[in-house]
Design a protein around this nucleic acid. Structure first.
Length: 321
RNA sequence: AGGGGAAUAGUACAGUGGUAGUGCGGCGGUCUCCAAAACCGUAAACGGGGGUUCGAGCCCCUCUUCCCCUG
């Protein structure tokens, strides 16, 4: 069997401090950073996505940042493909990939080499189901799924139209049950010699930092950034405009709510988002929790701990190349 | 000081004398192609003390607090 290649994952809830730490880690370990972030892939979206600045990179190579126009679609499958390409390149350079970002689903897709059975665009069927859901109600679609894939239907709540549609689509395209497929995929082990770090902090502190960061974003000109995107022709239905901070400010710019209301929603929804991220990471196997409190918020101590763990799990020493 | 009104969950509000509800927030969870998305679940309250009544969040008295009006 082929030897597993090394992969370092550095994740955690939004505003936990991943970005800063990732640079230091990359330098210590001889790594390059791949962003596992569904919004930082987009150009022209710097402030709201808390994107790292060129001058903050400290010479460390970054991948999957600023690679798409906001009008372009993006999803796990695209991410997985691009991420694999980037990793090959990094291995070829004799360096180590460091997956950094808060999108747990994306990390999972790469780490467990999830099979999404790529198939040609079938938006027609999707659109048809969406229209059907609107007309007949969510229960109607769920009933369809009940007949096609009972197990999936039992597992998915009728109101969760997105996943009901995906399950139906999967059945139509492959003739197989997504419930069975998922079960198989779930049993996979990490495809890499990986160290999976989750950076986290006291909930109260995290929430405070989130609120402060949103205020900072506004001070830096988030509204202007979104206004420019709007002027470029960005609309609500684009994947990029579903990002936190973007959909709310867009709504404000369309006169649908006050700025105060928009800011309130950004803060609230970002807090909720951070909570969902934590829930996700709690479920992931083999994660190494890095509680900042336990290290007295000392980055040096955190780094030492991480290097130690990396040596244990991947066999990589701490010597930079 | 006098007159009037209000007091119900963290908050904003419901609640014929008969099992105290709703939204938002909080907390927990699901997730294998829109995931910064979508979805689900849960805890939590009648200001204090008397009285009337089989039974009081609701009626009466009183205390406390808050709001409005008038000197």
């Amino acid at each position: 069997m082929e030897q597993k290649k090394p992969l370092i994952v550095l994740t955690g809830p939004t505003a936990a401090g991943k970005t800063g730490l990732s640079i230091r880690l990359a330098k210590a370990v001889g790594g390059e950073i791949i962003s596992a972030d569904s919004m930082q892939v987009y150009k022209h979206m710097d402030i709201g996505s808390a994107k790292i600045k060129k001058e903050e990179m400290g010479g460390v190579a970054h991948h999957l940042i600023d690679i798409l126009e906001p009008s372009e679609p993006f999803n796990v499958v695209i991410f997985q493909r691009l991420c694999r390409q980037a990793m090959e390149q990094i291995y070829a350079n004799g360096r180590i990939p460091i997956l950094t970002g808060g999108t747990g689903f994306y990390i999972q897709a790469v780490l467990y080499d999830v099979d999404f059975t790529e198939n040609e665009e079938d938006t027609a069927y999707r659109d048809m189901l969406e229209a059907l859901a609107k007309k007949e109600g969510p229960q109607y679609l769920h009933d369809m799924l009940q007949k096609a894939d009972k197990k999936a239907a039992d597992a998915i709540h009728p109101n969760n139209i997105k996943r009901v549609i995906r399950a139906l689509e999967f059945y139509k395209q492959t003739g197989m049950h997504i419930s069975a497929h998922n079960e198989t995929e779930r049993q996979k082990e990490s495809a890499y010699a990986s160290a999976y770090f989750v950076l986290h902090d006291d909930r109260q502190k995290l929430y405070e930092r989130i609120e402060k960061r949103v205020d900072d974003m506004l001070a830096k000109g988030l509204v202007q950034e979104v206004a420019q995107l709007k002027a470029m022709g960005c609309t609500k239905d684009m994947v990029s405009m579903q990002g936190l901070g973007y959909k709310e400010i867009l709504s404000f710019l369309y006169g649908e709510c006050s700025l105060e209301e928009a800011v309130y929603r950004i803060k609230r929804d970002t807090r909720h988002f951070a909570k969902r991220q934590l829930t996700w990471f709690k479920r992931e196997k083999n994660v190494i929790w890095v509680n900042k409190q336990d290290f007295d918020y000392d980055d040096e101590a955190i780094l030492t701990f991480m290097e130690q763990k990396i040596k244990e799990t991947t066999g990589i020493g701490g010597v930079a190349t």
